[in-house]
Design a protein around this nucleic acid. Structure first.
Ligand SMILES: [Mn+2]
Ligand SMILES: [Mn+2]
Ligand SMILES: [Mn+2]
Ligand SMILES: [Mn+2]
Lengths: 220, 220
DNA sequence: AACAATTTTTAGATACATCTAAAATATATT
DNA sequence: AATATATTTTAGATGTATCTAAAAATTGTT
């Protein structure tokens, strides 16, 4: 099959395509992969030879159907393993990413699908990111950010956009977790900071934070 | 840490040391690793530089304490993952080895130890092989082979020496499994074949088979 | 349109793990 | 002890993934 490196590039291109829909630039990929542009060019040529991406010199890359399928399979494995680590092995949500980076490369369709069943076919990983099914379909969408809600609205926290250890620990510290209701008491126009109410306690959060929290608004 | 390749060599040396206690020869290692003697020499030099093995030209290799510790850690992971696959994910004992070959290289002490606890700290893997604890101690020994028992004796099947798919499927077909009692009705001196009784049914097995089954004799 | 700055590619090098073929060493046989 | 055979090592090559430095192409600015 494909090497770890190839799979990691495919995953990175998949994520960057959301932002750069006209084609992912060499530099953008280099930054994401924490490597040099020249290395990216080398790898992109190889992926192109294997028909995993469409690539024309100086014009960036896009995933082919085959490339997209492979990327989604890797993402599926990554997120299922994260659920396993948190649900079954007592890991906290800020500890699982690096291990999932390793586990996502294990090759066995049966393993992936049995793991999925064992975990009860979860639709989201511990950070609220959607888990594609065995056919590669994402069954839910992360729509709204907390920053998009208005004063008076309430949303249930369903995911995080930033899943860095730092952000996750900030959330833990302030008792913000997936499933919690967040009510917007006041929105400061100047810096877009929010005064919110969680578990009947008031908390002031910055736009940086509210812009990294996905919510599902509640009808009121 | 160490590369997959380095870890696989350490594991192979560990297993071969039982047979070649005076030092594992380059050719023996090459055969085990399914590679060329020249490749083995290259790798052995690298392992020696890293002080994982003791090596003198033309005299074979032995694991250092550090090398042995690393090998045992890899074996621990391999066998724990095999238990996980069989006990939790509905794999049969002849399907797990190749996947465990991948999973044994995942680097996370916490993962290994949490997995161990999750599985109830098993002492044996699905093939009856002993699983070392977090300190590297094997808590049980595979002592006797069925072929070593005499006419009239009974043993409980506790492990397999050969864990190839072919042998495991042969055992399944003949309803021989770990935990089963095997009584020796008659031993043919000419070819060492055995007439045994399992679940009150008689079965004729060859020396090849009886020499690959570990048993714990029952007092009678 | 010309020049400057940025981006991207190419050329050439390094490290790893492997190979083949040849040389060196050790072991077995007469 | 000399010779033949087997084992092991060395020398040199290949493929992958990475890097630095230089060249080429694109984009932005006067
Ligand atoms: Mn992750
Ligand atoms: Mn990865
Ligand atoms: Mn195994
Ligand atoms: Mn292995």
């Amino acid at each position: 099959m494909f090497s770890f490196s190839e799979e990691n590039y495919l995953k990175a291109i998949f994520h960057l395509q959301k932002k750069y829909s006209g084609g992912v630039s060499t530099n953008a990929l280099a930054e994401q992969m924490e490597t040099k542009a020249s290395s990216v060019t080398d790898m992109v040529k190889k992926l192109s030879d294997k028909e995993l991406v469409k690539y024309k010199k100086y014009q960036g890359v896009k995933l082919s159907e085959k490339g997209k399928k492979t990327a989604v399979e890797v993402i599926r494995k990554h997120r299922l393993w994260e659920v396993f680590l948190v649900e079954k092995l007592n890991f906290s949500w800020d500890e699982v990413h690096d291990i999932a980076e390793q586990l996502e490369h294990i090759k066995s369709a049966k393993l992936t699908n049995e793991l999925d069943n064992f975990l009860g076919n979860p639709k989201r990983d511990p950070h609220g990111d959607p888990i594609p099914d065995a056919q590669g379909n994402f069954r839910i969408a992360n729509n709204l950010l907390l920053a998009d809600l208005e004063k008076g609205q309430t949303g249930v926290c369903v995911g995080v956009k930033d899943s860095s250890t730092e952000f996750l620990r900030y959330l833990d510290k302030n008792h913000i977790a997936l499933g919690k209701q967040i009510h917007i008491v006041y929105k400061e126009e100047y810096d877009k900071s929010l005064l919110v109410k969680i578990d009947d306690k008031e908390l002031l959060i910055s736009h940086t934070v509210s812009n990294n929290l996905f919510v599902k608004p509640i009808e009121s």
